[in-house]
Design a protein around this nucleic acid. Sequence first.
DNA 1: TAACAACGTTTAAAAAAATCAACAACTCCC
DNA 2: GGGAGTTGTTGATTTTTTTAAACGTTGTTA
Lengths: 197, 197
Amino acid sequence: MSSIMESALAETNADTDFDVGARLRSVREARGLSQRELARRAGVTNGTISLIEQNKNSPSVASLKKVLDGLPMTLAEFFALEQPPQDQVFFRAEELIELTKGAVSFRQVGPREGNHKLQVLHERYAPGADTGKSMLRHEGEEGGVILRGHIELTVGERRQTLGPGDAYYFPSTLPHRFRNPGPEACEIISACTPPYL
Amino acid sequence: MSSIMESALAETNADTDFDVGARLRSVREARGLSQRELARRAGVTNGTISLIEQNKNSPSVASLKKVLDGLPMTLAEFFALEQPPQDQVFFRAEELIELTKGAVSFRQVGPREGNHKLQVLHERYAPGADTGKSMLRHEGEEGGVILRGHIELTVGERRQTLGPGDAYYFPSTLPHRFRNPGPEACEIISACTPPYL
DNA sequence: TAACAACGTTTAAAAAAATCAACAACTCCC
DNA sequence: GGGAGTTGTTGATTTTTTTAAACGTTGTTA
């Protein structure tokens, strides 16, 4: 590998502050395994693990999975280990971040940026407001509780109107749509993982 | 690539039910991007994306990261996604599942069992109620919005009393405690990922 | 109908990662 | 001190992935 590529690779890793090599070394040592012992369990060579840990090559997903199986650890767990240093914990009502204004208002709990796994919203739908004719679809799961007013929620082929105290929960991959059919504004507290918008 | 290796690769993917190709295709299409458009944004060729999506090769972490940057999406998000088949979507107020009864009441939105990534709760703290002297600590992140009454929330060294409309968000690994200091019951809608309790 | 553009797929050559086998450094034990 | 065992690292070769450029299909337009 050329030194140009080495630095390019290092750059790539620096982008997300996610250092595959350092993390692998960290979890391997945490379990008290040598490179060779892990290699034996994973069915790869010790050289492979050495090179990965030094970031001298970037393993394929297939081989990284083999290595992690030797620990054992899932790919999701491996990549989920990021510790977003969290600053603010408490948010006054007027501090919530306005993601969308107008007939549909989404006010987010928590900082706008930062790599989080959860999104909590205080939603407000004006009478007649609608998330749109084309259904929403995205990764993850979402749920919520209706505080005031009524909302007509369509999920896949199912449709229902919910009132105060009622709730919903579904995988966000199903096409979905929110509409306020009534004369009164509707308020919802919702959560979504991973964050959308 | 030999057909033996093809099946071996397929086997590897089947182990965790994690299909890199299918997932990439899914998230790409969810964002309305063509293979070529994503390739352009990611700085790779369209052929690469085609081969990955067909599981005809297993991308290196470096190149998968490049591709995901074009979406954009982090590696952690990519590997965290699983698709639990969901049955019930709508939940009437009286259908919420009572997880704990008494001074502190947690009523959960969504089915009790099933492998979910999100937990949405309607919480109610009687006057003086408390989650306990010993602080809570668990994996994940949590957030919520106060509906009625007041709650005294302690997170790490920080402590604050929140009222209606106020909110909180923190990594659940920090020791935390909820206490209702007032003469009035406190209601909260909260969310937590991954589910706790 | 033909021309054109966009799409996903495929093939041969170039680039990168995995293996195999060696190397130096270190500990332990006699 | 010397030998056997372990550790992590490194070069030469093999295997796999990525690229670049083509192919076949589909939908649109003149």
